[in-house]
Design a protein around this nucleic acid. Structure first.
Lengths: 354, 354
DNA sequence: CTGAAAGCGCTAACAC
DNA sequence: GTGTTAGCGCTTTCAG
């Protein structure tokens, strides 16, 4: 019956019970190997701690140590699946070092973001992980560049240029897209479309670029007509897969800027009687839960690794604050599932024409 | 050029610059209306604070105030879309009160969970929000019941029985499922299947129960043959939608325990030449991003509201620690999209037989 | 090897 | 109205 209700017990209680001073207790409880303490004392302190159910107060500790063992995470992302994996990766990397994540997940309002960011800084986070769409960021007024100047390390995820000296982790989207396109050409497709997204995200640009390169490599001239935005610029305008299917000679294969666009394209095509993969090969981007559920061929972005590496970069910078800014590029990978079907014969071209 | 680099400035600096004592500065900066302070002084302090770019240290404040303005969130959930909405809801409710969320997102390992939970407690979170599958929890040894006993308020999300006095927020799944099933009977379906999930989650039970009730209401005897698990008990065994389609008289409509099961069913059916909605009406559960993308008829669970209410319950309990345990049940809602199609005529029964 | 004392940055009583 | 003092719970020199 060691019921210890409210009266939170502190290190002095442990010390008293073990018959030592708080300082000694602190030394053994913080596993400080460099301080020589008699083994019998060590044991006594530890026993006292368990007996009392001692739980160190991280707040007090933070105040003295001048660090909180906490990272702030600012998240504004469309794909919750990506975010979830990212978060899990971060937490994985943090676990062994007993670091935490203080979360600021906004729906995209920069004002809210700034407010939450400020809050994170008040809480003295040891570092920041930032993932948000690249709206214009003024280095002088935006909270993040200021925080970086004041010495808070920051790594930005999935962006390449940030107006402050930060570390980057990104995925190799250009290569992934190239691989995916090549897969389509190898399957026999010559007329391949791309549904992009409105925002001029550098990530999406890379994907279009990879697509272009693969086309060129296959001796196909990229047709600007076949690259269309998912969202209409003006209401009523045909957009996305619809626009592509409306072309005089519609593509036989389509890449989408992300899995969600691909999934929508799949549905829309189906409604028009265009079957995937029989009539249309489709590939997504991201390998989110959507792609997994739909058996969608896609380019895998290692979101979990992204999170893990982001945290690692932060840890590295805590040790070496002056290390040169790093950009880590993680490889993508083509995941072949069912949405492209087997090799097909191009219409108009006889099979194995000899 | 008010470049203030590293030397973090504290409240004493502000006080000095304003020509007041730290205490006074603290009073005005914490917006304490009850302390009478001359307006001119107030202004001076505030000006000094902005001029110096003062940022309060939340850690120090927490230590004195005895609370951290931080909630801990323990998340182990299958659906990232649900989790994302939940988190956003929590953050929404926290924003105005300047509360934070310390996150522990585990992949389901109870050992890791306990470790992270302990960490949250060390960080002195003011409250806990818990969402995880209901594996067996021993009230004597599990960290959460212990934390509750020691006085940390906790609200558990989407579970009904927890071996500790906590508050609950759940969704009205039984009613939602009933509504969905009723929708199917009204569409003319008499043979309706249900794909459940292996885990005996109380949430899923509710969904099956609602389905049964609606069947009974429509004068249809529930056929146990039509309730199948998504995952095979033994490898190789037919399961999920496959098992249902293999029945002598397969169902014309199927409810799934969640959207992801529904999405898989859709794909699997398609592969067997069974079209949704023409040959098979399908309804999901959750209204996750999956359902939205697929135009899947589903039962909406207000995940965001769930998060908001969870945080509210915590706030309430901080004010009234002794308030009786509360269970909040949030309404679900049938979202009709495309996966059930229009009213159909039951095979064998002539249309509008008069 | 261990303890005493100082202080992290802030707020809360209580003087003035 | 405002300043002084005393901690919050812990770690950390630095003596002993």
């Amino acid at each position: 019956m060691k019921q210890v209700p409210h009266p939170r017990i502190g290190i002095r209680d442990v010390a008293r019970r073990a018959g030592v001073s708080p300082a000694t207790a602190s030394h053994v409880l913080s596993e400080r190997a460099d301080v020589p303490i008699r083994d019998s004392t060590r044991r006594r302190v530890r026993e006292a701690a368990v007996a009392l159910g001692y739980r160190p107060n991280a707040i007090a500790r933070s105040l003295t140590e001048g660090r909180t063992r906490t990272f702030g995470l600012i998240l504004m992302t469309g794909s919750s699946s990506f975010a979830a994996d990212l978060v899990c990766g971060i937490q994985e990397a943090c676990r062994e070092r007993r670091y935490h994540t203080l979360l600021a997940w906004t729906s995209g309002d920069p004002v809210v973001e700034a407010e939450l960011g400020e809050l994170l800084l008040e809480h003295q986070v040891d570092g920041l992980i930032y993932h948000a769409p690249p709206y214009a960021i003024d280095p002088d007024t935006h909270w993040l560049p200021r925080a970086v100047r004041e010495g808070t390390p920051c790594v930005v995820v999935q962006e390449r240029a940030f107006p402050a000296p930060v570390d980057y982790v990104i995925t190799e989207d250009c290569g992934g897209s190239q691989l995916a396109t090549q897969h389509l050409t190898e399957l026999g497709h010559r007329r391949i479309g791309f549904v992009t997204v409105a925002e001029q995200r550098s990530r999406v640009w890379d994907r279009v670029e990879g697509y272009r390169r693969a086309l060129l490599d296959a001796g196909i001239a990229p047709d600007p007509e076949l690259v269309v935005p998912e969202f209409a610029a003006r209401p009523g305008e045909a957009c996305g897969i619809e626009a592509l299917l409306d072309r005089a000679i519609p593509p036989t294969a389509v890449l989408a800027a992300n899995d969600s666009v691909a999934a929508r394209a799949w549905r829309t095509a189906g409604r028009r009687g265009v079957r995937v993969p029989q009539d249309l090969a489709l590939v997504g981007f991201g390998d989110t839960d959507l792609a997994q559920v739909l058996e969608l061929t896609t380019v895998r972005q290692p979101a979990r690794d992204l999170g893990r590496e982001a945290a690692q970069l932060l840890f590295r910078r805590l040790q070496e604050p002056a290390a040169p800014p790093t950009s880590l590029v993680l490889p993508t990978e083509l995941i072949v599932r069912e949405s492209c079907g087997p090799r097909r014969v191009q219409s108009g071209v006889p099979p194995d024409s000899t």
